[in-house]
Design a protein around this nucleic acid. Structure first.
Length: 413
RNA sequence: GGGGAGAUACCCAAGCGGCCAAAGGGGGCAGACUGUAAAUCUGUUGGCUCAUGCCUUCGGAGGUUCGAAUCCUCCUCUCCCCA
């Protein structure tokens, strides 16, 4: 095999969709060596177990890892159970609140389960940075902290901004990049991946490796995916995400709600839809031959197919067309049995109570009242606008609250 | 260590003794229009079986007052300046 040629080919494949690749020549050399010695590269991705679910924003990077695996390399999926106690200040305008040990453990389990929807378990090593982080001790931390200066820390955008705006920066936040970098030292990573907001942290890793006499890791950054609102980055805490663990209908529905401008970007970054097809969609939408709605359906199906199955995608598309395009009441709406306690002596249920009962704590009675007043509540297809409305529960009723909450209401027995 | 400024609802931010569940904006939700898109317009945005009512909420704990987000005391946290 022509090692150099193959290494060049791999570089080209891996470089696609990246924002930064530092340093490309180094990656090439590492790949050459890997091929000659038949030693897979050690590719690191660290994730703090802060949010208990992965969303398709995370998958941008994970897909890249999958590409490394496809070329025979090993992925080290590092769960930042130690760094998670600090909380990554990247891109944040305020200090994160630390997690408890239990939360971290729980979230880590969820991650493990979810990444294998994309990654190949055979080529994945799971690590926890508490393993070496705890051993560092206070002396280790001090030594580590001595390797970096305040001025250099303040080069970071987010720190600089916060500092300039007079917002607080806690001292321990300075430790985060250092500890993340130390992970690379401990793991002897060849490559580390992250979102563009991770660039600083990744670079610190290079620095620390060099100082420790190791060959510095190559760093690769990938775009940050915007959330459903199309403006802010996708994140669980902003509620603008599509979780990879969500059910087909939810994934499909959320995908259909993104702004048009995001369709192609989602396809490129978050799906396995082939390049040529994405190009066709792009040009088709530009010249008006492809309706954005249809492009979105394609995207939505692609996502469902990836995390569930092709059949599930078909099914979700059908469901969506019926429920939202044809405005039919979905057959599989959640069934709610009404407690006896809600039924008054006259055998009737007050509409407001029915709604709060169906909402199971997510809808207050004031809110239910508001929804009724605003015409957002439908019973058996007809708008209920009288908040005093009572209903006799002698059969199944179809209740719709707002745009997307559907319930099949049945008597308790 | 000294001096100054500040903490208001999901976020930003006004209010500085009663008319304050608290202006305005953002965001959210609902309605119209649609493609559950965007844009736009309208309404709404603490809770309570809805009530010229009650309860909870203006960093925390006390106090003054008929009455406090607003005044006083102490505490906690943040920022700035000086050392």
């Amino acid at each position: 095999m022509d090692v150099e040629r193959e290494a060049r080919r791999q570089v080209a494949v891996l470089k696609a969709r990246t924002v930064d690749l530092l340093v490309e020549e180094e990656l090439y050399r590492k790949l050459c060596r890997s091929l000659r010695t038949a030693t897979p590269l050690r590719v690191k991705l660290g994730l703090d177990p802060t949010a208990p679910d992965l969303h398709i924003g995370h998958t941008v990077v994970i897909h890249k890892l999958r590409e490394f695996q496809a070329l025979g390399h090993h992925v080290i999926f590092l769960i930042g159970d130690f760094t998670g106690m600090i909380g990554d200040p990247s891109g944040r305008s305020e200090t994160r609140k630390p997690l408890t040990a239990e939360q971290i453990q729980q979230n880590a389990e969820t991650y493990k389960r979810q990444i294998f929807k994309i990654l190949d378990p055979e080529r994945t090593i799971i690590e926890y940075n508490s393993r070496w982080g705890k051993a560092l001790g206070s002396e280790g931390i001090i030594t580590l902290a001595a390797r970096y200066t305040v001025a250099r820390m303040l080069e970071r955008d987010d720190f600089q901004k916060r500092y300039a705006e007079g917002r607080p920066i806690s001292l321990h936040e300075f430790l985060y990049p250092l500890l993340q970098g130390y992970d690379s030292v401990a793991l002897r990573a060849d490559v580390e991946l992250g979102g563009t907001d991770q660039k600083f942290n990744l670079l610190v890793g290079r620095e620390l490796m060099r100082e420790s006499g190791l060959e510095p890791q190559v760093i690769m950054t990938l775009p940050i995916l915007e959330g459903l609102d199309g403006v802010q980055k996708m994140s669980k805490s902003l509620g603008n995400y599509i979780g990879i663990d969500e059910d087909p209908q939810t994934i499909f529905g959320k995908a259909m709600s993104i702004p048009d401008g995001l369709i192609v970007r989602y396809m490129e970054l978050a799906t396995a839809i082939p390049r040529e097809e994405i190009e066709a969609v792009r040009t088709g939408m530009a010249d008006g031959t492809v309706h954005p709605r249809d492009a979105k359906v394609r995207l939505a199906m692609g996502l469902v197919a990836q995390y569930h199955s092709a059949e599930a995608a078909e099914e979700a598309a059908r469901w969506f067309a019926q429920t939202f395009s044809a405005r039919q009441f979905p057959e599989d709406a959640g069934v709610v049995r009404v407690d006896e306690a809600l039924i008054k002596d006259d055998g009737q249920v007050w509409i407001i109570q029915l709604i709060t009962h169906c909402g199971k704590g997510t809808i207050s009675s004031s809110e239910a009242s508001r929804l009724v007043r605003q015409g957002g509540v439908k019973l058996d297809g007809a708008v209920v606008s009288d908040r005093e409305y009572r209903l006799r529960l002698d059969r199944e009723h179809q209740l719709q609250v707002g745009k997307r909450r559907f319930y099949r209401v049945l008597p308790s027995k």
